[in-house]
């Protein structure tokens, strides 16, 4: 299969809500009402207070949860159909590596789960990309938290997905490695534009990487603000010091504070 020739996929999220039924008969509304169109190859960063439904929204995009209302389509298909063509890559808050597989085999796992022949070169390329070629034969328990997270990102990219779903994948990393990984992610993304949705708690990271930053309000999450980021690409680490970047940072941080604690901000 010529994975290289796959195009990009636009995503349409239409009036999506999610309500979880709890065992005691009550229910909680995790995602309020989200409408969003994402262009093919666009990079979206999603920020918002803890528990506002970001992961839930991503899980619905990945077909791991069904919306209670509304519709999600990826290049005109449902997430389930998208999964059948192996067009989706995910890296979640928890790395989800198989403890009995080496780093390399963990990266190769999507090939085997998908029933495709393992492309060893591709696996090595990704291990290099996340800087863990020397740890190819290490088991997850022999890797640090950040290393495991990097393996998990490598795994999400290995099948060259058209849509990449990243839920706080850098949360466990130290500041320096995190910036390094941000840079790498930008490089990977610009080499082959992939529709990407990244959830992050770092407003800086969101601005650095995204074409648009979406701010979600507290649960039930809705999109409170959508901010286009028109900084030139490729963005460099120095870009973070520029005035235009700092202005965006100030604006979005204030907006985040306001949705989180309206009484303090006003």
């Amino acid at each position: 299969m010529a994975a290289d020739e796959k195009g990009t996929s636009s995503i349409v999220i239409e009036e999506v809500r999610k309500r979880f039924e709890l065992t005691n008969g009550q229910s909680i509304e995790a995602v309020g009402h989200v409408d969003l169109e994402i262009a093919g190859g666009e990079f979206i960063a999603l920020i918002g207070p803890s528990g506002c439904g970001k992961s839930t929204l991503l899980r619905m995009l990945a077909g791991l949860e069904q919306p209670s209302h509304g519709r999600i389509s990826i290049a005109g298909e449902t997430p389930e159909e998208c999964i059948k063509h192996h067009d989706l890559g995910i890296a979640m808050q928890e790395h989800g590596l198989m403890p009995w597989l080496t780093a390399k085999k963990n990266v190769a796992l999507p090939f085997r789960l998908a029933g495709l022949p393992v492309d060893e070169d591709r696996v090595d390329e990704l291990l290099n990309l996340v800087g863990l070629q020397d740890f190819a034969e290490a088991l997850p328990k022999q890797l640090s938290g950040g290393m495991k997270q990097r393996i998990s990102i490598a795994r999400s990219l290995v099948l060259r997905p058209r849509v990449l779903i990243l839920d706080e994948p850098f949360g466990a990393l130290d500041a320096v490695t995190r910036r390094l990984m941000n840079n790498e992610l930008q490089r990977i993304w610009s080499q082959k534009p992939t529709t990407t949705i990244l959830v992050t708690h770092s407003v800086e990271e969101a601005i650095f990487l995204a074409d648009r930053v979406c701010l979600m309000s507290p649960r039930p999450g809705r999109l409170a603000l959508i901010e286009p980021i028109e900084l030139e690409r490729p963005r460099k680490l120095e870009t973070m010091q520029e005035q235009s970047f700092l202005n965006l940072l100030a604006k979005l941080t204030a907006a985040l504070d306001e949705v989180c604690m309206p009484e303090v901000a006003t």
């Binding site: 899980r59 990945a62 890559g89 790395h95 989800g96 796992l109």
Partner: peptide
């Protein structure tokens, strides 16, 4: 999370059983 991984990469129950 491992169930999630299976779900996003493997639609085939046999492979999920054998591999994970």
């Amino acid at each position: 999370v491992h169930h999630d991984v299976i779900h996003t990469y493997g639609v085939n129950r046999w492979r999920a059983l054998i591999l994970v």
